[in-house]
Amino acid sequence: MEIKLELLPPEKRRKLDLEGDLPFGCIFTDHMFLMYYQEGKGWYDAQIKPYEPICLDPAATVFHYSQTIFEGLKAYYGVDGRIRLFRPERNMARMNYSAKRMCMPAIDKEFALHAIKTLVDLEKGWIPKEIGSALYIRPVLMGTEAFLGVKPSSEYIFFIILSPVGAYYKEGFNPIKIYVTDKYVRAVPGGVGDVKTGGNYAASLMASEEAAKLGYTQVLWLDAIERRYVEEVGTMNIFFYFEDELVTPALTGTILPGITRESVIQMAKDWGLKVNERRITIDEVIEGAETGRLKECFGTGTAAVISPVGYLAYKGKEYVINQGQTGPLAQRLFEELTGIQYGEKPDPYGWIQFVP
């Protein structure tokens, strides 16, 4: 399918100062990608056009039945001047997994990557050149058929928007404070916890608001059945580095299979670390923090890459991890991953794709 181009004339394109601190997800580029789907017709009318509101019928399924999924990845300006994407094929594979679970049509992964690269190349002037900043890429798929009734939509829009961003957390790479909730749950077995769908994030807002009021950056979720087993943080997967092993909760269908998570597991194993994907209770974590057996804790995700956790609050008590400092493993993982992403270090895994 050909991508039609409807571009703003150069004199109408905005010129922004991309130096210094950039807010996350508040600024958007001049253009966006869209294409449409209709049952019996398939995908059609792929286009890049000026960024603008999308007009939808008030009865569109996305409004009433939350039939929507999305992804998040980044484009990086390398130190050699080349533009890099980090494992974008994994994002599109995960998007199709989400689409299947939400009864939505699959997207041709190669075409989607072509669309991403075409749009990023067009908007490359929006990519910040400072290490640590990037161009955030947000692909979205949503149901648009106008009807009131619980069934899959027969019409969809797939679109991609871009946003120049700095650090996700105001703390930057400094350790964050996390609040463990046993009051709310994020996902249940057999549900959509391993799907990147909008409803998961809407359901997390109450706990996040309560944690923020107490001075915590994010929420650590426990399992929905016993409320004992650690699952993930609101925007990240979670890792615990004990004396002799690096542990992350196993993918049991209630946890998002993070691409940075997958990358960290591969790198840590290659460095000779014992890595276990298993169930881990909050009691084991607390005991490790109290005795010092828990050497480090950190989150992983596209937005923050590696986010050290210095403090953990549970049942009214705060526990300090590694004296509230960034640990050497988190530091090494951050430097290796960002080194690959910005072209400062070799890419032994073939994770990088270039634009164009």
Rank of each mutant, 00 (worst) to 15 (best):
M1T: 13
I3W: 08
K4F: 12
P10E: 13
K12A: 09
K15H: 14
E19C: 08
G25E: 09
T29Y: 01
T29D: 00
H31N: 06
M32F: 10
F33C: 01
Y36P: 06
Y36F: 15
G42E: 15
G42Q: 15
W43Q: 14
A46L: 15
P50L: 04
P50H: 06
Y51L: 09
Y51M: 15
Y51W: 10
E52M: 12
P53H: 10
C55V: 13
C55S: 09
L56G: 05
T61L: 08
Y65T: 03
Y65G: 03
S66F: 11
S66K: 03
Q67R: 04
T68L: 11
K74G: 08
K74P: 02
A75N: 01
I83L: 07
R87L: 11
R87P: 14
R90F: 11
A93M: 12
N96Q: 13
K100G: 10
R101V: 13
M102S: 13
M104G: 06
P105F: 03
A112E: 11
A112S: 11
H114G: 11
H114P: 05
I116F: 08
I116T: 10
I116E: 08
K117I: 10
K117W: 10
K117C: 14
L122E: 04
L122M: 06
E123F: 01
K124N: 12
G125N: 12
K129I: 07
G132R: 11
A134L: 07
Y136D: 03
Y136N: 02
I137S: 05
R138Y: 12
V140M: 14
V140H: 07
V140L: 15
G149Q: 10
V150I: 13
P152L: 14
S153Q: 12
I157S: 12
I157Q: 01
I161L: 09
I161S: 04
G166C: 03
Y169I: 04
K170F: 10
Y179C: 05
V180W: 02
T181E: 02
V185T: 14
V188N: 07
G191A: 12
V195W: 02
K196V: 09
Y201H: 03
S204C: 12
L205M: 14
M206C: 09
A207S: 14
E209P: 04
E209D: 07
T217G: 01
T217M: 04
L222M: 08
D223L: 04
A224P: 07
Y229P: 08
M236C: 08
M236P: 05
F239N: 02
Y241A: 15
Y241I: 13
Y241C: 14
E243Y: 08
D244P: 01
E245K: 14
A250C: 03
L251E: 05
G253E: 02
T254S: 02
I255V: 11
M267P: 03
E277A: 06
I280E: 01
D283E: 15
E284D: 15
E287L: 15
G292M: 13
G292S: 14
R293S: 14
L294I: 12
T302M: 07
T302Y: 06
V305N: 02
V305L: 07
G310S: 09
Y311C: 05
G316I: 09
N322L: 13
Q325C: 12
Q325N: 12
T326I: 07
Q331S: 11
F334K: 14
E336C: 11
L337Q: 04
T338Y: 02
T338W: 00
I340K: 00
I340D: 00
G343Q: 00
G343C: 00
P346N: 03
Q353Y: 02
F354A: 01
